[in-house]
Design a protein around this nucleic acid. Structure first.
Length: 543
RNA sequence: GGCCCCAUCGUCUAGAGGCCUAGGACACGGCCCUUUCACGGCCGCGACAUGGGUUCGAAUCCCAUUGGGGUCACCA
């Protein structure tokens, strides 16, 4: 039995997308399951979009997920031009490929004409005369190289679909293998590199299914072995049933902005002023689905319409990290999008997934990405995680959220916060509930609705209770959570107040909102001085 | 539109012709727990897209219809 070699071959255009991560995971799982090799290759042949920064982010995300690759030297396609050109030149010499002189514009015209005539567009090699070629050269045109694809029926087996896929001769056409800028196209790059790297199994998204015919034709022309193919289902956005896309985040913001304007009877101008964007820009964005806000504009609009980072659907791996998921949980959930170990088994460690993984349990229908279930997995994972694991995870989370006030916390305090927040789902929820501990008393923002409900309403009974409990706390000796609980509860018994009538005013006074960790833990964590000064400030606020 | 892929609860799925009165998980509903938000416990609701075959017998095999998705670049 020869070694199985898989690979992940992303193009570096930004942070890693969940779809890409899932493809990487499956390739990694297959390699680890069979004691094979998992290789990483950077497909940076699109000069306009590839950046070094993006490569760095990509590697960071892959490392965060724990998907280790086995080639110590990364393969960059942009560094392999000599190899590609040698092969391409030979193909041209052998008549297996040729120079084609049409410009992008000309090709586009042909495609449009075909669309108008309701015919599928297929490239047909024109008859270039020597004069014509000379004329093109004089115009300064540069030729691409096209592969003269043998016209015939192509068949290949797909082990994910568990079937033979047949492509008819009418579907094949001569495709570009070298662009005018001298770079190879994707089709050419993958075929050559997969062969040279000894890749035996290609697991990739279903969107590549029809590309496979180009690849096997090239393999035949070049005398390469054909790898085993498995095309994975496509993860879908549950809201519209389409492929998950970065644009989904922008859509969510637009939807919220429209709701905000409707419910508060605001105009575009009301949105423009506080966000600092122009009215015309916002108008275009609000009315056109294809126009997106860029990364610097998004937060400005979000702040105005009341959207938080974690309200947006996570699409990039980095989004999940920032929202406080553990990488193991994400991997577990991603593994279940298009694969199932059977036997009602769902929650697994990385090790279990490696042991159980098998390509014949791949599921071929497209899953809708269900974040609620992911969140539930996360809840269970955090509940079971060891203290050391929890601490490491929250520190990683804070590293991804440098602006969080929790970055001031000591390790000991973090452990404490983790303990008092038991039952939390994701770390961003813990952060949201606990950040007030680390915000100076005079910077606490009071939520007006909570102030009104808990303190002002019902003849300011809440204010009265708060004043009384302040007096009690001022002389309280035992400032432990248990001691505070005893003191406050006996106070409740004496006054006949329900605990909630005391705890909620306190909570609002300390945190500014009606939500916090358990009240006695919170008091103990803050300490007497902070507690009293926050109560005093709150009392000034309510007057 | 051409071509290709897919089709079990709202969602992710189990199911390899009789173990199916279709199992699990998430979501949802009810009750319980509770100082808030969560968490947790118990109970419940809920699916084989449709129509034809094949077979003693079909969620499972075949065909058609319908529906969904993908793809038609000098982007990967």
């Amino acid at each position: 039995m020869s070694t199985i070699v898989t690979r992940f071959a992303p193009s570096p255009t930004g942070y890693l997308h969940v779809g890409g991560a899932r493809t990487a995971l499956f390739n990694w799982l297959l390699a680890r399951n069979t004691d094979g090799k998992f290789l990483l290759r950077i497909e940076d042949t699109d000069l306009a979009r590839s950046t070094e920064d993006a490569t760095r982010q990509l590697l960071e995300d892959l490392k965060w997920l724990g998907l280790s690759w086995d080639n110590p030297e990364l393969v960059y396609q942009s560094k392999r031009l000599d190899i590609y050109n040698k092969i391409i030149d030979q193909m041209v010499a052998d008549g297996k490929a040729y120079e084609a002189w049409e410009t992008k514009d000309e090709l586009e015209q042909l495609q449009k004409a075909a669309e108008r005539a309701k015919r599928p567009f297929r490239y047909v090699k024109p008859n270039y005369t020597a004069d014509k070629i000379q004329q093109y050269k004089d115009e300064g045109r540069r030729a691409v190289i096209r592969f003269a694809m043998p016209v015939k029926e192509y068949k290949f087996r797909d082990i994910a679909l568990d079937k033979e896929v047949t492509i008819s001769p009418y579907e094949v056409q001569d495709f570009v293998i070298r662009k005018t800028d001298g770079m190879p196209t994707y089709h050419f790059g993958v075929v050559v590199d997969d062969a040279e790297m000894g890749v035996t199994h290609v697991l990739r998204g279903l969107e590549h299914l029809l590309n496979t015919v180009n690849h096997i034709a090239l393999q035949e022309a070049l005398g390469y072995a054909r790898p085993t193919y498995a095309h994975l289902s496509v993860m879908l956005n549950p809201e519209n049933g389409e492929k998950l896309s970065k644009r989904d985040r922008d859509r969510r913001i637009r939807k919220r902005a429209q709701e905000w304007m409707r419910s508060t009877k605001k105009t575009v101008a009301d949105l423009a002023t506080p966000s600092g964007l122009t009215e015309s820009r916002l108008n275009d964005w609000l009315t056109t689905d294809t126009i997106q806000l860029d990364l610097s504009e998004q937060p400005k609009v979000m702040a105005v319409v009341g959207l938080k980072e974690y309200d947006l659907p996570e699409i990039m791996i980095h989004d999940f990290r920032k929202n406080g998921y553990a990488p193991e949980v994400l991997n577990n959930f991603l593994a279940l999008q298009g694969w199932s170990p059977g036997n009602d088994l769902e929650q697994m460690t990385m090790q279990q997934m490696v042991e159980k993984f098998s390509t014949d349990r791949l599921v071929s229908s497209n899953p809708k990405f269900n974040r609620e279930k992911l969140k539930s997995f996360s809840t269970d994972w955090f509940a079971k995680a060891s203290p050391e694991k929890l601490l490491a995870t929250i520190k990683d989370f804070l590293q991804a959220n440098p602006a969080s006030p929790l970055n001031q916390a000591t390790d000991e305090q973090l452990v404490h916060l983790l303990k008092m927040n038991e039952g939390f789902r994701i770390l961003s929820e813990l952060e949201e509930k606990s950040r007030f501990f680390f915000i100076p008393a005079d910077q606490i923002a009071y939520d007006t609705a909570s102030i009104d409900k808990v303190l002002v309403k019902n003849d300011r009974q809440g204010v009265t209770a708060l004043k009384q409990v302040r007096d009690l706390l001022a002389v309280q000796n035992d400032w432990s959570a248990a001691g505070l609980e005893t003191a406050v509860k006996s106070f409740c018994e004496q006054t006949g107040l329900a605990l909630g009538k005391v705890a909620q005013p306190l909570r609002v006074a300390l945190s500014g909102s009606a939500v916090s960790p358990p009240i006695f833990d919170s008091l103990a964590f803050l300490g007497r001085e902070q507690t009293l000064s926050r109560i005093d400030r709150c009392l000034t606020v309510v007057g």
